[in-house]
C-alpha cells in the first residue's frame, strides 16, 4: 500500500509579470513530501523560496504545474476553495507574521482552531499550551502591536499550529529571533515533529535546518539538491568535543 503524500508538486512554475520584464521566480520544481516528514528549504536570497512555499499554501497563484495536497488537486482551486483548504489542513508562518492587529494575542492563536471547528475550550487549552511552550503566556492579553518582532513571530508559529494542521508551512520562522527565542522555537518544532507533524520550512539558520529529515536547496528557481541529512557516525560519549576544536 502506498501512502498519499502530504505534498506533491509537479513542474511548478511561477513567472511574475509586473509591468516590465517577466521575472521567472520558480522554474519547474518537483517535490514530494510524505506524511510526518520535515523538509528544510534553503538557498540564497532571491532563489524563489518564498514564492515556492506561498504557492504550496495557495497564497500565490502558480503560472503552470500542479499542486496536490493530501491527495487532492489544489492548484485549480478558486481563492475561496484555497481558503477552505488552508483552514482545514495548512498552518502558515509568514516571514512578516501577518497577525490580526485589532485582536489580542490569545484571540489570534485561537481563531484558526475555532474556524476549524474546535470547541472554545479546546481552542483555549491548545492556545495556552502553545503560548507557554514559546514563553509567551504573559503576553496573551496584549495586542500584536505591543509585541517585539521576535514575539510576534512566535505568536505566528503558535497560530499556525493551533489547529493541528496536516501541513505546517513556514517562511524563515526564526528570522527575527535571538538565539534564546530560536531555541524555544526549535524545541517546539522538534516536539510537534516527533508527534508526526509534517513540516516544510524555509530557513537560513543551520540549527533549524539541521532538525529536518531532508534538505532541499534552491538556486535560481530550481532545485539543485534534495537529499536526507545523514547521521554522523555515533561517537562514544564524551569525545564529541573534537567538533568544537575543529570549528572553534
Amino acid at each position: 500500500m502506498t501512502v498519499t503524500p502530504v505534498i506533491r508538486a509537479v513542474g511548478l512554475v511561477k513567472i511574475y509579470q509586473t509591468g516590465g520584464l517577466p521575472v521567472p521566480a520558480v522554474r519547474g520544481v518537483d517535490l514530494v513530501v510524505e506524511p510526518g516528514e520535515f523538509v528544510a528549504i534553503m538557498g540564497p536570497s532571491g532563489s524563489g523560496k518564498s514564492t515556492f512555499v506561498h504557492m504550496l499554501g495557495g497564497l500565490e497563484t502558480r503560472t503552470s504545474g500542479e499542486i496536490w495536497l493530501d491527495g487532492k488537486r489544489a492548484d485549480t482551486l478558486s481563492e475561496s476553495g484555497w481558503a477552505v483548504l488552508r483552514r482545514q489542513k495548512v498552518g502558515f508562518v509568514f516571514q512578516f507574521f501577518n497577525l490580526v492587529a485589532n485582536m489580542t494575542v490569545a484571540d489570534n492563536v485561537e481563531l484558526p482552531a475555532l474556524l476549524g471547528g474546535a470547541t472554545p475550550r479546546h481552542a483555549r487549552e491548545r492556545r495556552e499550551y502553545l503560548l507557554a511552550e514559546l514563553g509567551l503566556e504573559e503576553r496573551a492579553g496584549a495586542a500584536p502591536g505591543q509585541l517585539s518582532g521576535g514575539e510576534q513571530q512566535r505568536v505566528a508559529l503558535a497560530r499556525a499550529l493551533a489547529n493541528h494542521p496536516r501541513l505546517l508551512l513556514a517562511d524563515e520562522p526564526t528570522g527575527n529571533l535571538d538565539s534564546r527565542n530560536t531555541r524555544d522555537v526549535l524545541k517546539l518544532l522538534g516536539k510537534v515533529h516527533r508527534q508526526g507533524q509534517t513540516i516544510v520550512l524555509v530557513t537560513h539558520d543551520a540549527r533549524v535546518a539541521s532538525m529536518a529529515d531532508r534538505v532541499v536547496s534552491l538556486l535560481d528557481g530550481q532545485i539543485v539538491d534534495d537529499a536526507p541529512i545523514a547521521r554522523l557516525q555515533r561517537r562514544p560519549a564524551g569525545t564529541a568535543g573534537d567538533i568544537v576544536e575543529l570549528h572553534g
Binding site: 534553503m42 543551520a206 540549527r207 535546518a209 539541521s210 532538525m211 529536518a212 534538505v215 536547496s217 539543485v224 539538491d225 537529499a227 536526507p228 541529512i229 545523514a230 547521521r231 554522523l232 561517537r235 564529541a240 568535543g241 567538533i243 568544537v244 570549528h247
Partner: peptide
C-alpha cells in the same frame, strides 16, 4: 562544483545536529 557544494552543505548540517545533541 554543484555536487561538492551540495554534499558539503549536508555535511555541515550533520555537524550542526551533532553540536545540538552535544
Amino acid at each position: 562544483r554543484m555536487a561538492l557544494v551540495n554534499r558539503q552543505r549536508r555535511h555541515y548540517l550533520s555537524l550542526m545536529r551533532d553540536l545540538d545533541e552535544l
